[in-house]
Write a protein that binds this DNA or RNA. Structure first.
Lengths: 155, 155
DNA sequence: CTTCATGCAAAACATTTGCAGCTGG
DNA sequence: CCAGCTGCAAATGTTTTGCATGAAG
């Protein structure tokens, strides 16, 4: 990933390195806020603006995949920077990356029907993960989502 | 649709009626801003806040489907208020509702693999519509999308 | 050295909320 | 009549931008 930056003659600063590390290391799909907090532990002066700028840069370079949701919160995937399906728990906000071969078929079906030249996709499934299915009665994680939505990324 | 409001003892005001009409009539997937402008033609005092409140209300009643995008813009579908796939032109922002039977299969595949109890989904395909495919050289519609994205709803 | 990045503060936007006055039923 | 709406203005929360300082190469 560093190679990609060097190749394009983009400066490698300690801040960027730290952000890169978080992105590469996290198995989950961290939000900007989480990245910032994480990095701030070893870099107290890190500003949110810098995280935004860096993540935005990486997105343009195709090194991370941005997962923006309707409530204007975004999560980032630094391990699979290409479109792929997600499975999201509406209770604990966990995000999984399932394997799904059937998608290609779907895309081809679409192209045939609409005449579109399909170039990317965004496929999310929402539901309860096995753990949350079990504890259904217990109080759920509070989401800052506005209104009574279910946390799904609005269309 | 009116019936649904009456049944729940929700007041039917001229403003709401106007918004409902736009939602029901528009074949496309209008944004709040567009709904407001449309309604404002016959209702100059209509405020944006009212449109937001009404649309939000309809969403909770399950009468419209919200399609929120990463750039915090939302579009609404008043004709199919249930999850269904979308095909979105990244150039002219046109949105189509294709028929797609294969989706159910996909959902079942996911559930089997992850153990999730799938309750909803969001499936979007991005690309160029036939018209835009042809005029590829011409200047594209300017999108207010922040940064150099391609207009796809961030995850 | 020169160019580019950082970080602060301010701006930009879409959306939400508080509230006084209006109005549908 | 009166609970529920409207519309204005102000508040919110996230992301972006301007700019002076500082550091990478």
């Amino acid at each position: 990933m560093l190679a990609s930056l060097r190749r394009r003659k983009i400066r490698i600063t300690p801040q960027r390195l730290a952000i890169l590390r978080v992105l590469a290391a996290s198995k989950g799909h961290p939000a900007v806020e989480q990245i910032h907090q994480q990095v701030a532990r070893t870099f107290p002066t890190m500003s949110l603006a810098t995280v935004y700028k860096t993540v935005s840069l990486l997105k343009q370079l195709g090194e991370v995949l941005e997962l923006g949701f309707a409530d204007a919160s975004s999560r980032y995937d630094g391990n699979r920077p290409y479109p792929h399906p997600h499975v999201i728990c509406t209770r604990c906000r966990k995000i999984l990356d399932p394997d799904l071969a059937a998608l290609e078929t779907l895309a081809r079906e679409i192209a045939a029907e609409t005449g579109f030249r399909i170039e990317a996709h965004r496929v999310d499934f929402f539901g309860l993960c096995p753990e949350c299915s079990r504890r259904e009665g217990e109080p759920a994680l509070q989401m800052k989502d506005r209104r009574g939505g279910d946390g799904r990324p609005g269309p």
